[in-house]
Design a protein around this nucleic acid. Sequence first.
DNA 1: TATGAATGAGTATTCATTCAT
DNA 2: GATGAATGAATACTCATTCAT
Lengths: 196, 196, 196, 196
Amino acid sequence: MAGKLEQQKQEKKQNLLTAALELFMENGVAKTSIDQIAGRAQVAKGTFYLYFHDKEDLLQELIYRISCHVLDEAYRAVDSRRTDDFIENVILFADAIIEYFKRNRLQLRLIERNFSWPLVTRQMSARTDAIWQALIRDLQASPLARTHTGDEMFKLIFVIVEMCGSVCYSSIIEEKPDTIDNMKPVLYGIIRRALG
Amino acid sequence: MAGKLEQQKQEKKQNLLTAALELFMENGVAKTSIDQIAGRAQVAKGTFYLYFHDKEDLLQELIYRISCHVLDEAYRAVDSRRTDDFIENVILFADAIIEYFKRNRLQLRLIERNFSWPLVTRQMSARTDAIWQALIRDLQASPLARTHTGDEMFKLIFVIVEMCGSVCYSSIIEEKPDTIDNMKPVLYGIIRRALG
Amino acid sequence: MAGKLEQQKQEKKQNLLTAALELFMENGVAKTSIDQIAGRAQVAKGTFYLYFHDKEDLLQELIYRISCHVLDEAYRAVDSRRTDDFIENVILFADAIIEYFKRNRLQLRLIERNFSWPLVTRQMSARTDAIWQALIRDLQASPLARTHTGDEMFKLIFVIVEMCGSVCYSSIIEEKPDTIDNMKPVLYGIIRRALG
Amino acid sequence: MAGKLEQQKQEKKQNLLTAALELFMENGVAKTSIDQIAGRAQVAKGTFYLYFHDKEDLLQELIYRISCHVLDEAYRAVDSRRTDDFIENVILFADAIIEYFKRNRLQLRLIERNFSWPLVTRQMSARTDAIWQALIRDLQASPLARTHTGDEMFKLIFVIVEMCGSVCYSSIIEEKPDTIDNMKPVLYGIIRRALG
DNA sequence: TATGAATGAGTATTCATTCAT
DNA sequence: GATGAATGAATACTCATTCAT
C-alpha cells in the first residue's frame, strides 16, 4: 500500500521535530547539533537532510507548528467560554495565549518574538485558515466594525498581539518588570481602552 | 603619565566596539568572528580578550551603549519641543525613538528585542540615571499620577515601550503588517487611549 | 519479445550515459553526483547500479565512446579527401581530430589526456577494429614501411598522436602557449619532418 | 630574534608539504585527507589552514616546487656534459628530465600533465628565472635562431616538451606502448628531425 | 526489474581560546 | 600590555551504496 510508506515518512519527520523541540528547549538552538537531533530521533544523520534543508529550516517548521497549536488552543478556549461582549472575548483570547505560554515557558523561549507570524507570513494550512476565517467573522460582527475599516481593525489586533507577545516574553522569561500575573491587569486595561 | 595610558586603552576598546558594530550590522552577529573584529580594529586577536570576555560580552556592551544613545537623543528631542500635554509628550518621546530606528534600521536589527533593557536591567550610568530621574519627575507631575501609583505608571510605560519596540521591529525590518509610518496612527491611538 | 526488453535496457543505459556526459561537461566529474545523473536520466538512483558499477566505470565507458567517435569521424574525413601523399594523409587525420576538439572543447576537457587509449587499451569493438585495420593497411602501403618495422611505425604514430593530443589540450583549453590555429604550423611542421 | 619565528613557520610549512607529498604519492590526492596530512606533519588540523587555503592550493605549490626542482636538475645535468651540438644539448636536457621521472615515477603520477607549466604560467622565482634566462641565451646562440623567430623557437620547444611529458606519462606510468627506454629512440629521432 | 528511503562513514572548515615571546 | 601562531574540539554536510518493497 502506498499510504503506509508515506505514513512512515511522516512519522520519521515527526520524530525529528519532536527530538529537536526537546533538545532546543533543553539546551537552546545554538547548542543543539544535527548529530544530537538525529541521535534522539533514532535516525542516521543523513536522514535529517532528507527531511530538512538545515537546522534553521527545521526551526521555522517548529515555530510554525507551535504557533498554530497555540492559536488553535486559544481559539477553542474562547469558543467554550464565549460571552456577548466582544472586548471580553478578545481578552479571553489573549489570556488563553498567555496561559499557554505560562505552562510552556520553554516553548516561549524558543519562539522568542516569532509568534504571530503564521497569521501573516505563511501559506495558511486548512487548520489555521479555519481559525483565521472565524476571527475575521467575529471581528466583522463586532461593534469595532462600525467605526473601523477592516484594515484598521487588522492593524489594531496585530499591535495588541505583538504587545501581548512582547510582554509575555519579558515577564514570563525574565520576570521583568514583574510576573506575568501582575502585568495582566495593565495589559488588559490597555486592551479594553484600545478597543473600547 | 597614567592618564595617557588609560586614554590609549579606552581608545582601543572603543575601536573594538566600533569595529564590531560595523561588522555585526554588515554580516550579523553569528557570522562575525573575533578574528574579523580584531582585524578591523587593527589589534591582534589576543588583545580582544584583554578588553572583553567573549563576543557576547561585547554585544551586551554594544546594546547598552546604543540603547542609552537612543534614549538620550529621544529625551532631548522631547525637551526641545515639549508641550503642556503630558500624553503628547509621551508620543513625542515614542516618535523620537521610532524615527531614530527608521534612520538606523541596522542598529534595530542588531538590538532586536533587547531595547528598553538598559532602563531596567543594568546598573545605570550617570548619563542614563539623569534621564531616568527626569522621566520619573515628568511622570509624577502628570495627570496620570492622580489615578495611578508609581508602580502602576511604571508598568504602563513599560508595556507601551515594549509595544513600540515590537511594532518597530516588525514594521521597520519586515514591513509587517505595514510600513512604520502607516502603523504610527494605530500605535499613537492606542497610547492616547491607554493614557487618556 | 525479448528484443524489445533488451532495447529498453539499452535505451536506459544510453540515457544514463547522455545525462552523465552533459553533467560532467557542465560541472566536472568530481562535482557530479550519481544522484544528479540518475535524476537527469529520469531513473531512480538504484537503477544506476544496475547498469554501472560506479561513476568511474561510467566515465571509462564515456571516454571510450567519445574516442571511438572521434577516430571514426577523423578516419572518414581522411577517406573523403585522401591524397596520394602519405604524410599529407596523416596530417589530414590529425587535423580532423584537432578540428573535432575545437568544436567540442568540453569533451576534450572531460577526456583530458585519456584520448588515444582506445587504440591500445581496450578490447576493440567491431567498429574500432575496422578503423584500426584500415590504418594498418595504409601504414604498410606507405613509404615509411620501407625504412621502418611495423613496431617502429606504430611507436612513431603513437608519439605523434600523443603530441597532438597534448598540444590540443594546452592550446584549446588554456590557449597556452597560443591558440591551436597558431600551433598547427609548428605541429604539422614536426610531423612532416618526423615522417619525411 | 624575528628571523627565528619566521624560520619556524617555514619549517612547519615545509613539514606540511613533505607530509602531503608522501601521502599523495602513497595513496593518491583524492584519497588523502587534510586530517592525514596534518597528522603526519605533526601539527593540528587547524594549522594546515594557516598555511594553505585548501588541498588544491597545497597541490599547486607542490607541483610548482617539483617542476622547478626537475628543471633545475635537468639544466645542471646539461651544463656538466654540454657539447657543441645544440640539438644534442636539447636531447641531453630531455633525457635528464626523463631520467628524473624514471627515478621518481610517483612524482610523475602526481604531476600528471601539469609539468612544464611553471615555465609559462607562474611568476618566476629567482631560481626558475635564472634557468629560463640561460635557456633563452642558449636558444638564441643556436643555429635554429638563423631560420626561426624567437616566438617560433619557443613554440617548437614547447611542443617538444609536451611531447616528452606526455610520452613519459604513458610509458613510465602505464608502459604504453612500451617502456620509456624503448620509446627514447623514437622520441629523440623526432627531436633530431624537428630541430635539424 | 525498478525504486528511493535510509544509512553513516568521511571530510572540510571554522573559531574561540591559550600562551610563549 | 600586546602579539599572533597554534590548537583541536565541534559541526555541518555529502554521497556512494544498500536493501526492503
